[in-house]
Design a protein around this nucleic acid. Sequence first.
DNA 1: GTAGACTTGTTAGCAACGCTAACTAACTCG
DNA 2: CGAGTTAGTTAGCGTTGCTAACAAGTCTAC
Lengths: 148, 148
Amino acid sequence: MGARGTARTSRALAETWHGLAIHLLRGLRREDTRAGMTGPRLSALSVVVFGGPITLGDLAAAEQVRPPTMTRLVAALEAGGLVRREHDPDDGRVVRLRATAKGQAVLRQGRDRRVRRLATPIAALSAAERAVLRDASAVMARVVAGLR
Amino acid sequence: MGARGTARTSRALAETWHGLAIHLLRGLRREDTRAGMTGPRLSALSVVVFGGPITLGDLAAAEQVRPPTMTRLVAALEAGGLVRREHDPDDGRVVRLRATAKGQAVLRQGRDRRVRRLATPIAALSAAERAVLRDASAVMARVVAGLR
DNA sequence: GTAGACTTGTTAGCAACGCTAACTAACTCG
DNA sequence: CGAGTTAGTTAGCGTTGCTAACAAGTCTAC
């Protein structure tokens, strides 16, 4: 296939997967709100849980969000007792975030809800179709990494 | 593979693709904001352009959104001259939506910004890898449809 | 050491999304 | 005809994201 065809094919695939990603997450968002947890909060909490104590600014950067947005997300998480603010003794400006035990539990449950919902229609596929998805996931991971 | 194995595999695939979708859209989010066009509007406009004249309710269903949300999205598109409302002569309740020439042009330009970014790493794949993505997209479309 | 510049995070205010509840208008059917 | 259903709109709420402006802490250069 010539360069022209490659570009056309790539573009069509990009459009297709772009739409799929949008609708996939849209379909899962309902699970979040049901438990009072939203996508962005769950995602931020996940970084705090697995990324250890982290500053608010670093967390905002990790989530690709501006600091004011993260301030509000963290406020919600703190109000729910999922995260604790700790002040750096060496630098009074810095806020360090640490997940509470409750935060870790809520993250686990929230993730489960989302994943279970997506796993249901996947389980309805044939084994061959699941194999197709498995192969494609490795390829897609490289594509997503290339977005950086 | 037994029922146990199917469940385990499905769950692993769900986790993988969940993460992929999140990071894919996060990577594309920056391409969004431009000249009054947002992701949801672009997505709805796309359905109107390619899905021909369509009722508001069907468009809402296609976008997995409630009618009031679509009413507002369509109002924005109409205000921008991208879409026209047409009243069904046989059924006075129905609103049919048709894209204007400007709407078609804006869709191409606007979506280009997002899609181009995703198409770039896809074009760097081998033809075989792109074929894997193409096959998987059909399967994933059914999974996403099953989230309803 | 102190004045100015930079960094970190917050507050305030805006627009966009998505939802439910409640409503109007139009159609259908007994 | 009248009750019930369907399509779409309006009103109002909560969440997310942004920029601008600000407060507080730290660093640097003189």
